[in-house]
Amino acid sequence: MDPKPSIVVDNLVKRFGKFVAVNRVSFQIRSGEIFGLLGPNGSGKSTTIRMLCGLLTPTSGSATVVGFDIARQAEEVRRHIGYMSQKFSLYDDLTAVENLEFFGGLYGVTGDALTKGIAWALGMSGLAGNEQALTREFSGGWKQRLALGCAVLHRPRVLFLDEPTAGVDPLSRRQFWDLIHQMSREGITILVTTHYMDEAEYCNRLALIESGRIVEMGTPGEIKRLAIHGNLLLIEAAPLGDALAAVKRAPGVTDASVFGAALHVVVGDQQSERELPAFLAARGIRVDRIEPIAPSLEDAFVSLTGEKPAGDADS
């Protein structure tokens, strides 16, 4: 791996009483990489990110961020990171500029650097011309970009984004990811948590996390390949419930689940794939469509964890 990874997480554990929120999590992130933690709500992704930011103390295990230990050198760590939570924590009763000035000041950005940084952040967030408006008057997308501006004003080397696109319209989400990629190109390491499958595809690498454990890790492509052993077929059939039951008993089928009004079925070998229509027809099921498709992350996730990620209504 990269000789000098930006973030190294080693066997990190966080317990709240008897509940283990994060269970022996380990990963490394290269400089400039966009690394996604993908998992349902309550899977431990926010807890992980909050430990890395120094907001929570790990129960055991260790981690370094840009070479600094998160437990012993929290202050050094904080100097080099930016953090943005899903709440877009800004002051509603301050203007855009005042928010930027405030957080810039806390990071020790002053003088020329502050002026330039603010101008850049305003341009980036599309708030130029509205800089004297109170933050409470902004839409979700604007608030999100302003919060991002506040988090990167001090040019951090690592950016932590905890569910950064929650409650933002699709267009703003696209724009936001364009900004993230731009920052990654400038060398900023980005760790992002999400439960949006489509967003996870934007990451360079991903870790699938469930119940506090990392289930799988790799590039989106790798994860899909790892998860799906065989070919993925889309089958539109009626009645759907009977079809699902039948498919699961069909020879060579390793996995089957309902996606919308159709079935996604993983078949291990070519032979079984060819025989499937006949198998279903013999059981009185009308097959309208059957065709191979490219697996999505959602397929991979369902296949790996046996359940759908939360909030999938949006994805």
């Binding site: 120094g54 907001l55 800004l90 806390l106």
Partner: peptide
């Protein structure tokens, strides 16, 4: 409650 405390806490402030 509004979450800004967390945002302040990740800055180098003591």
């Amino acid at each position: 409650e509004i979450g800004t405390l967390e945002q302040i806490m990740v800055t180098p402030i003591r």
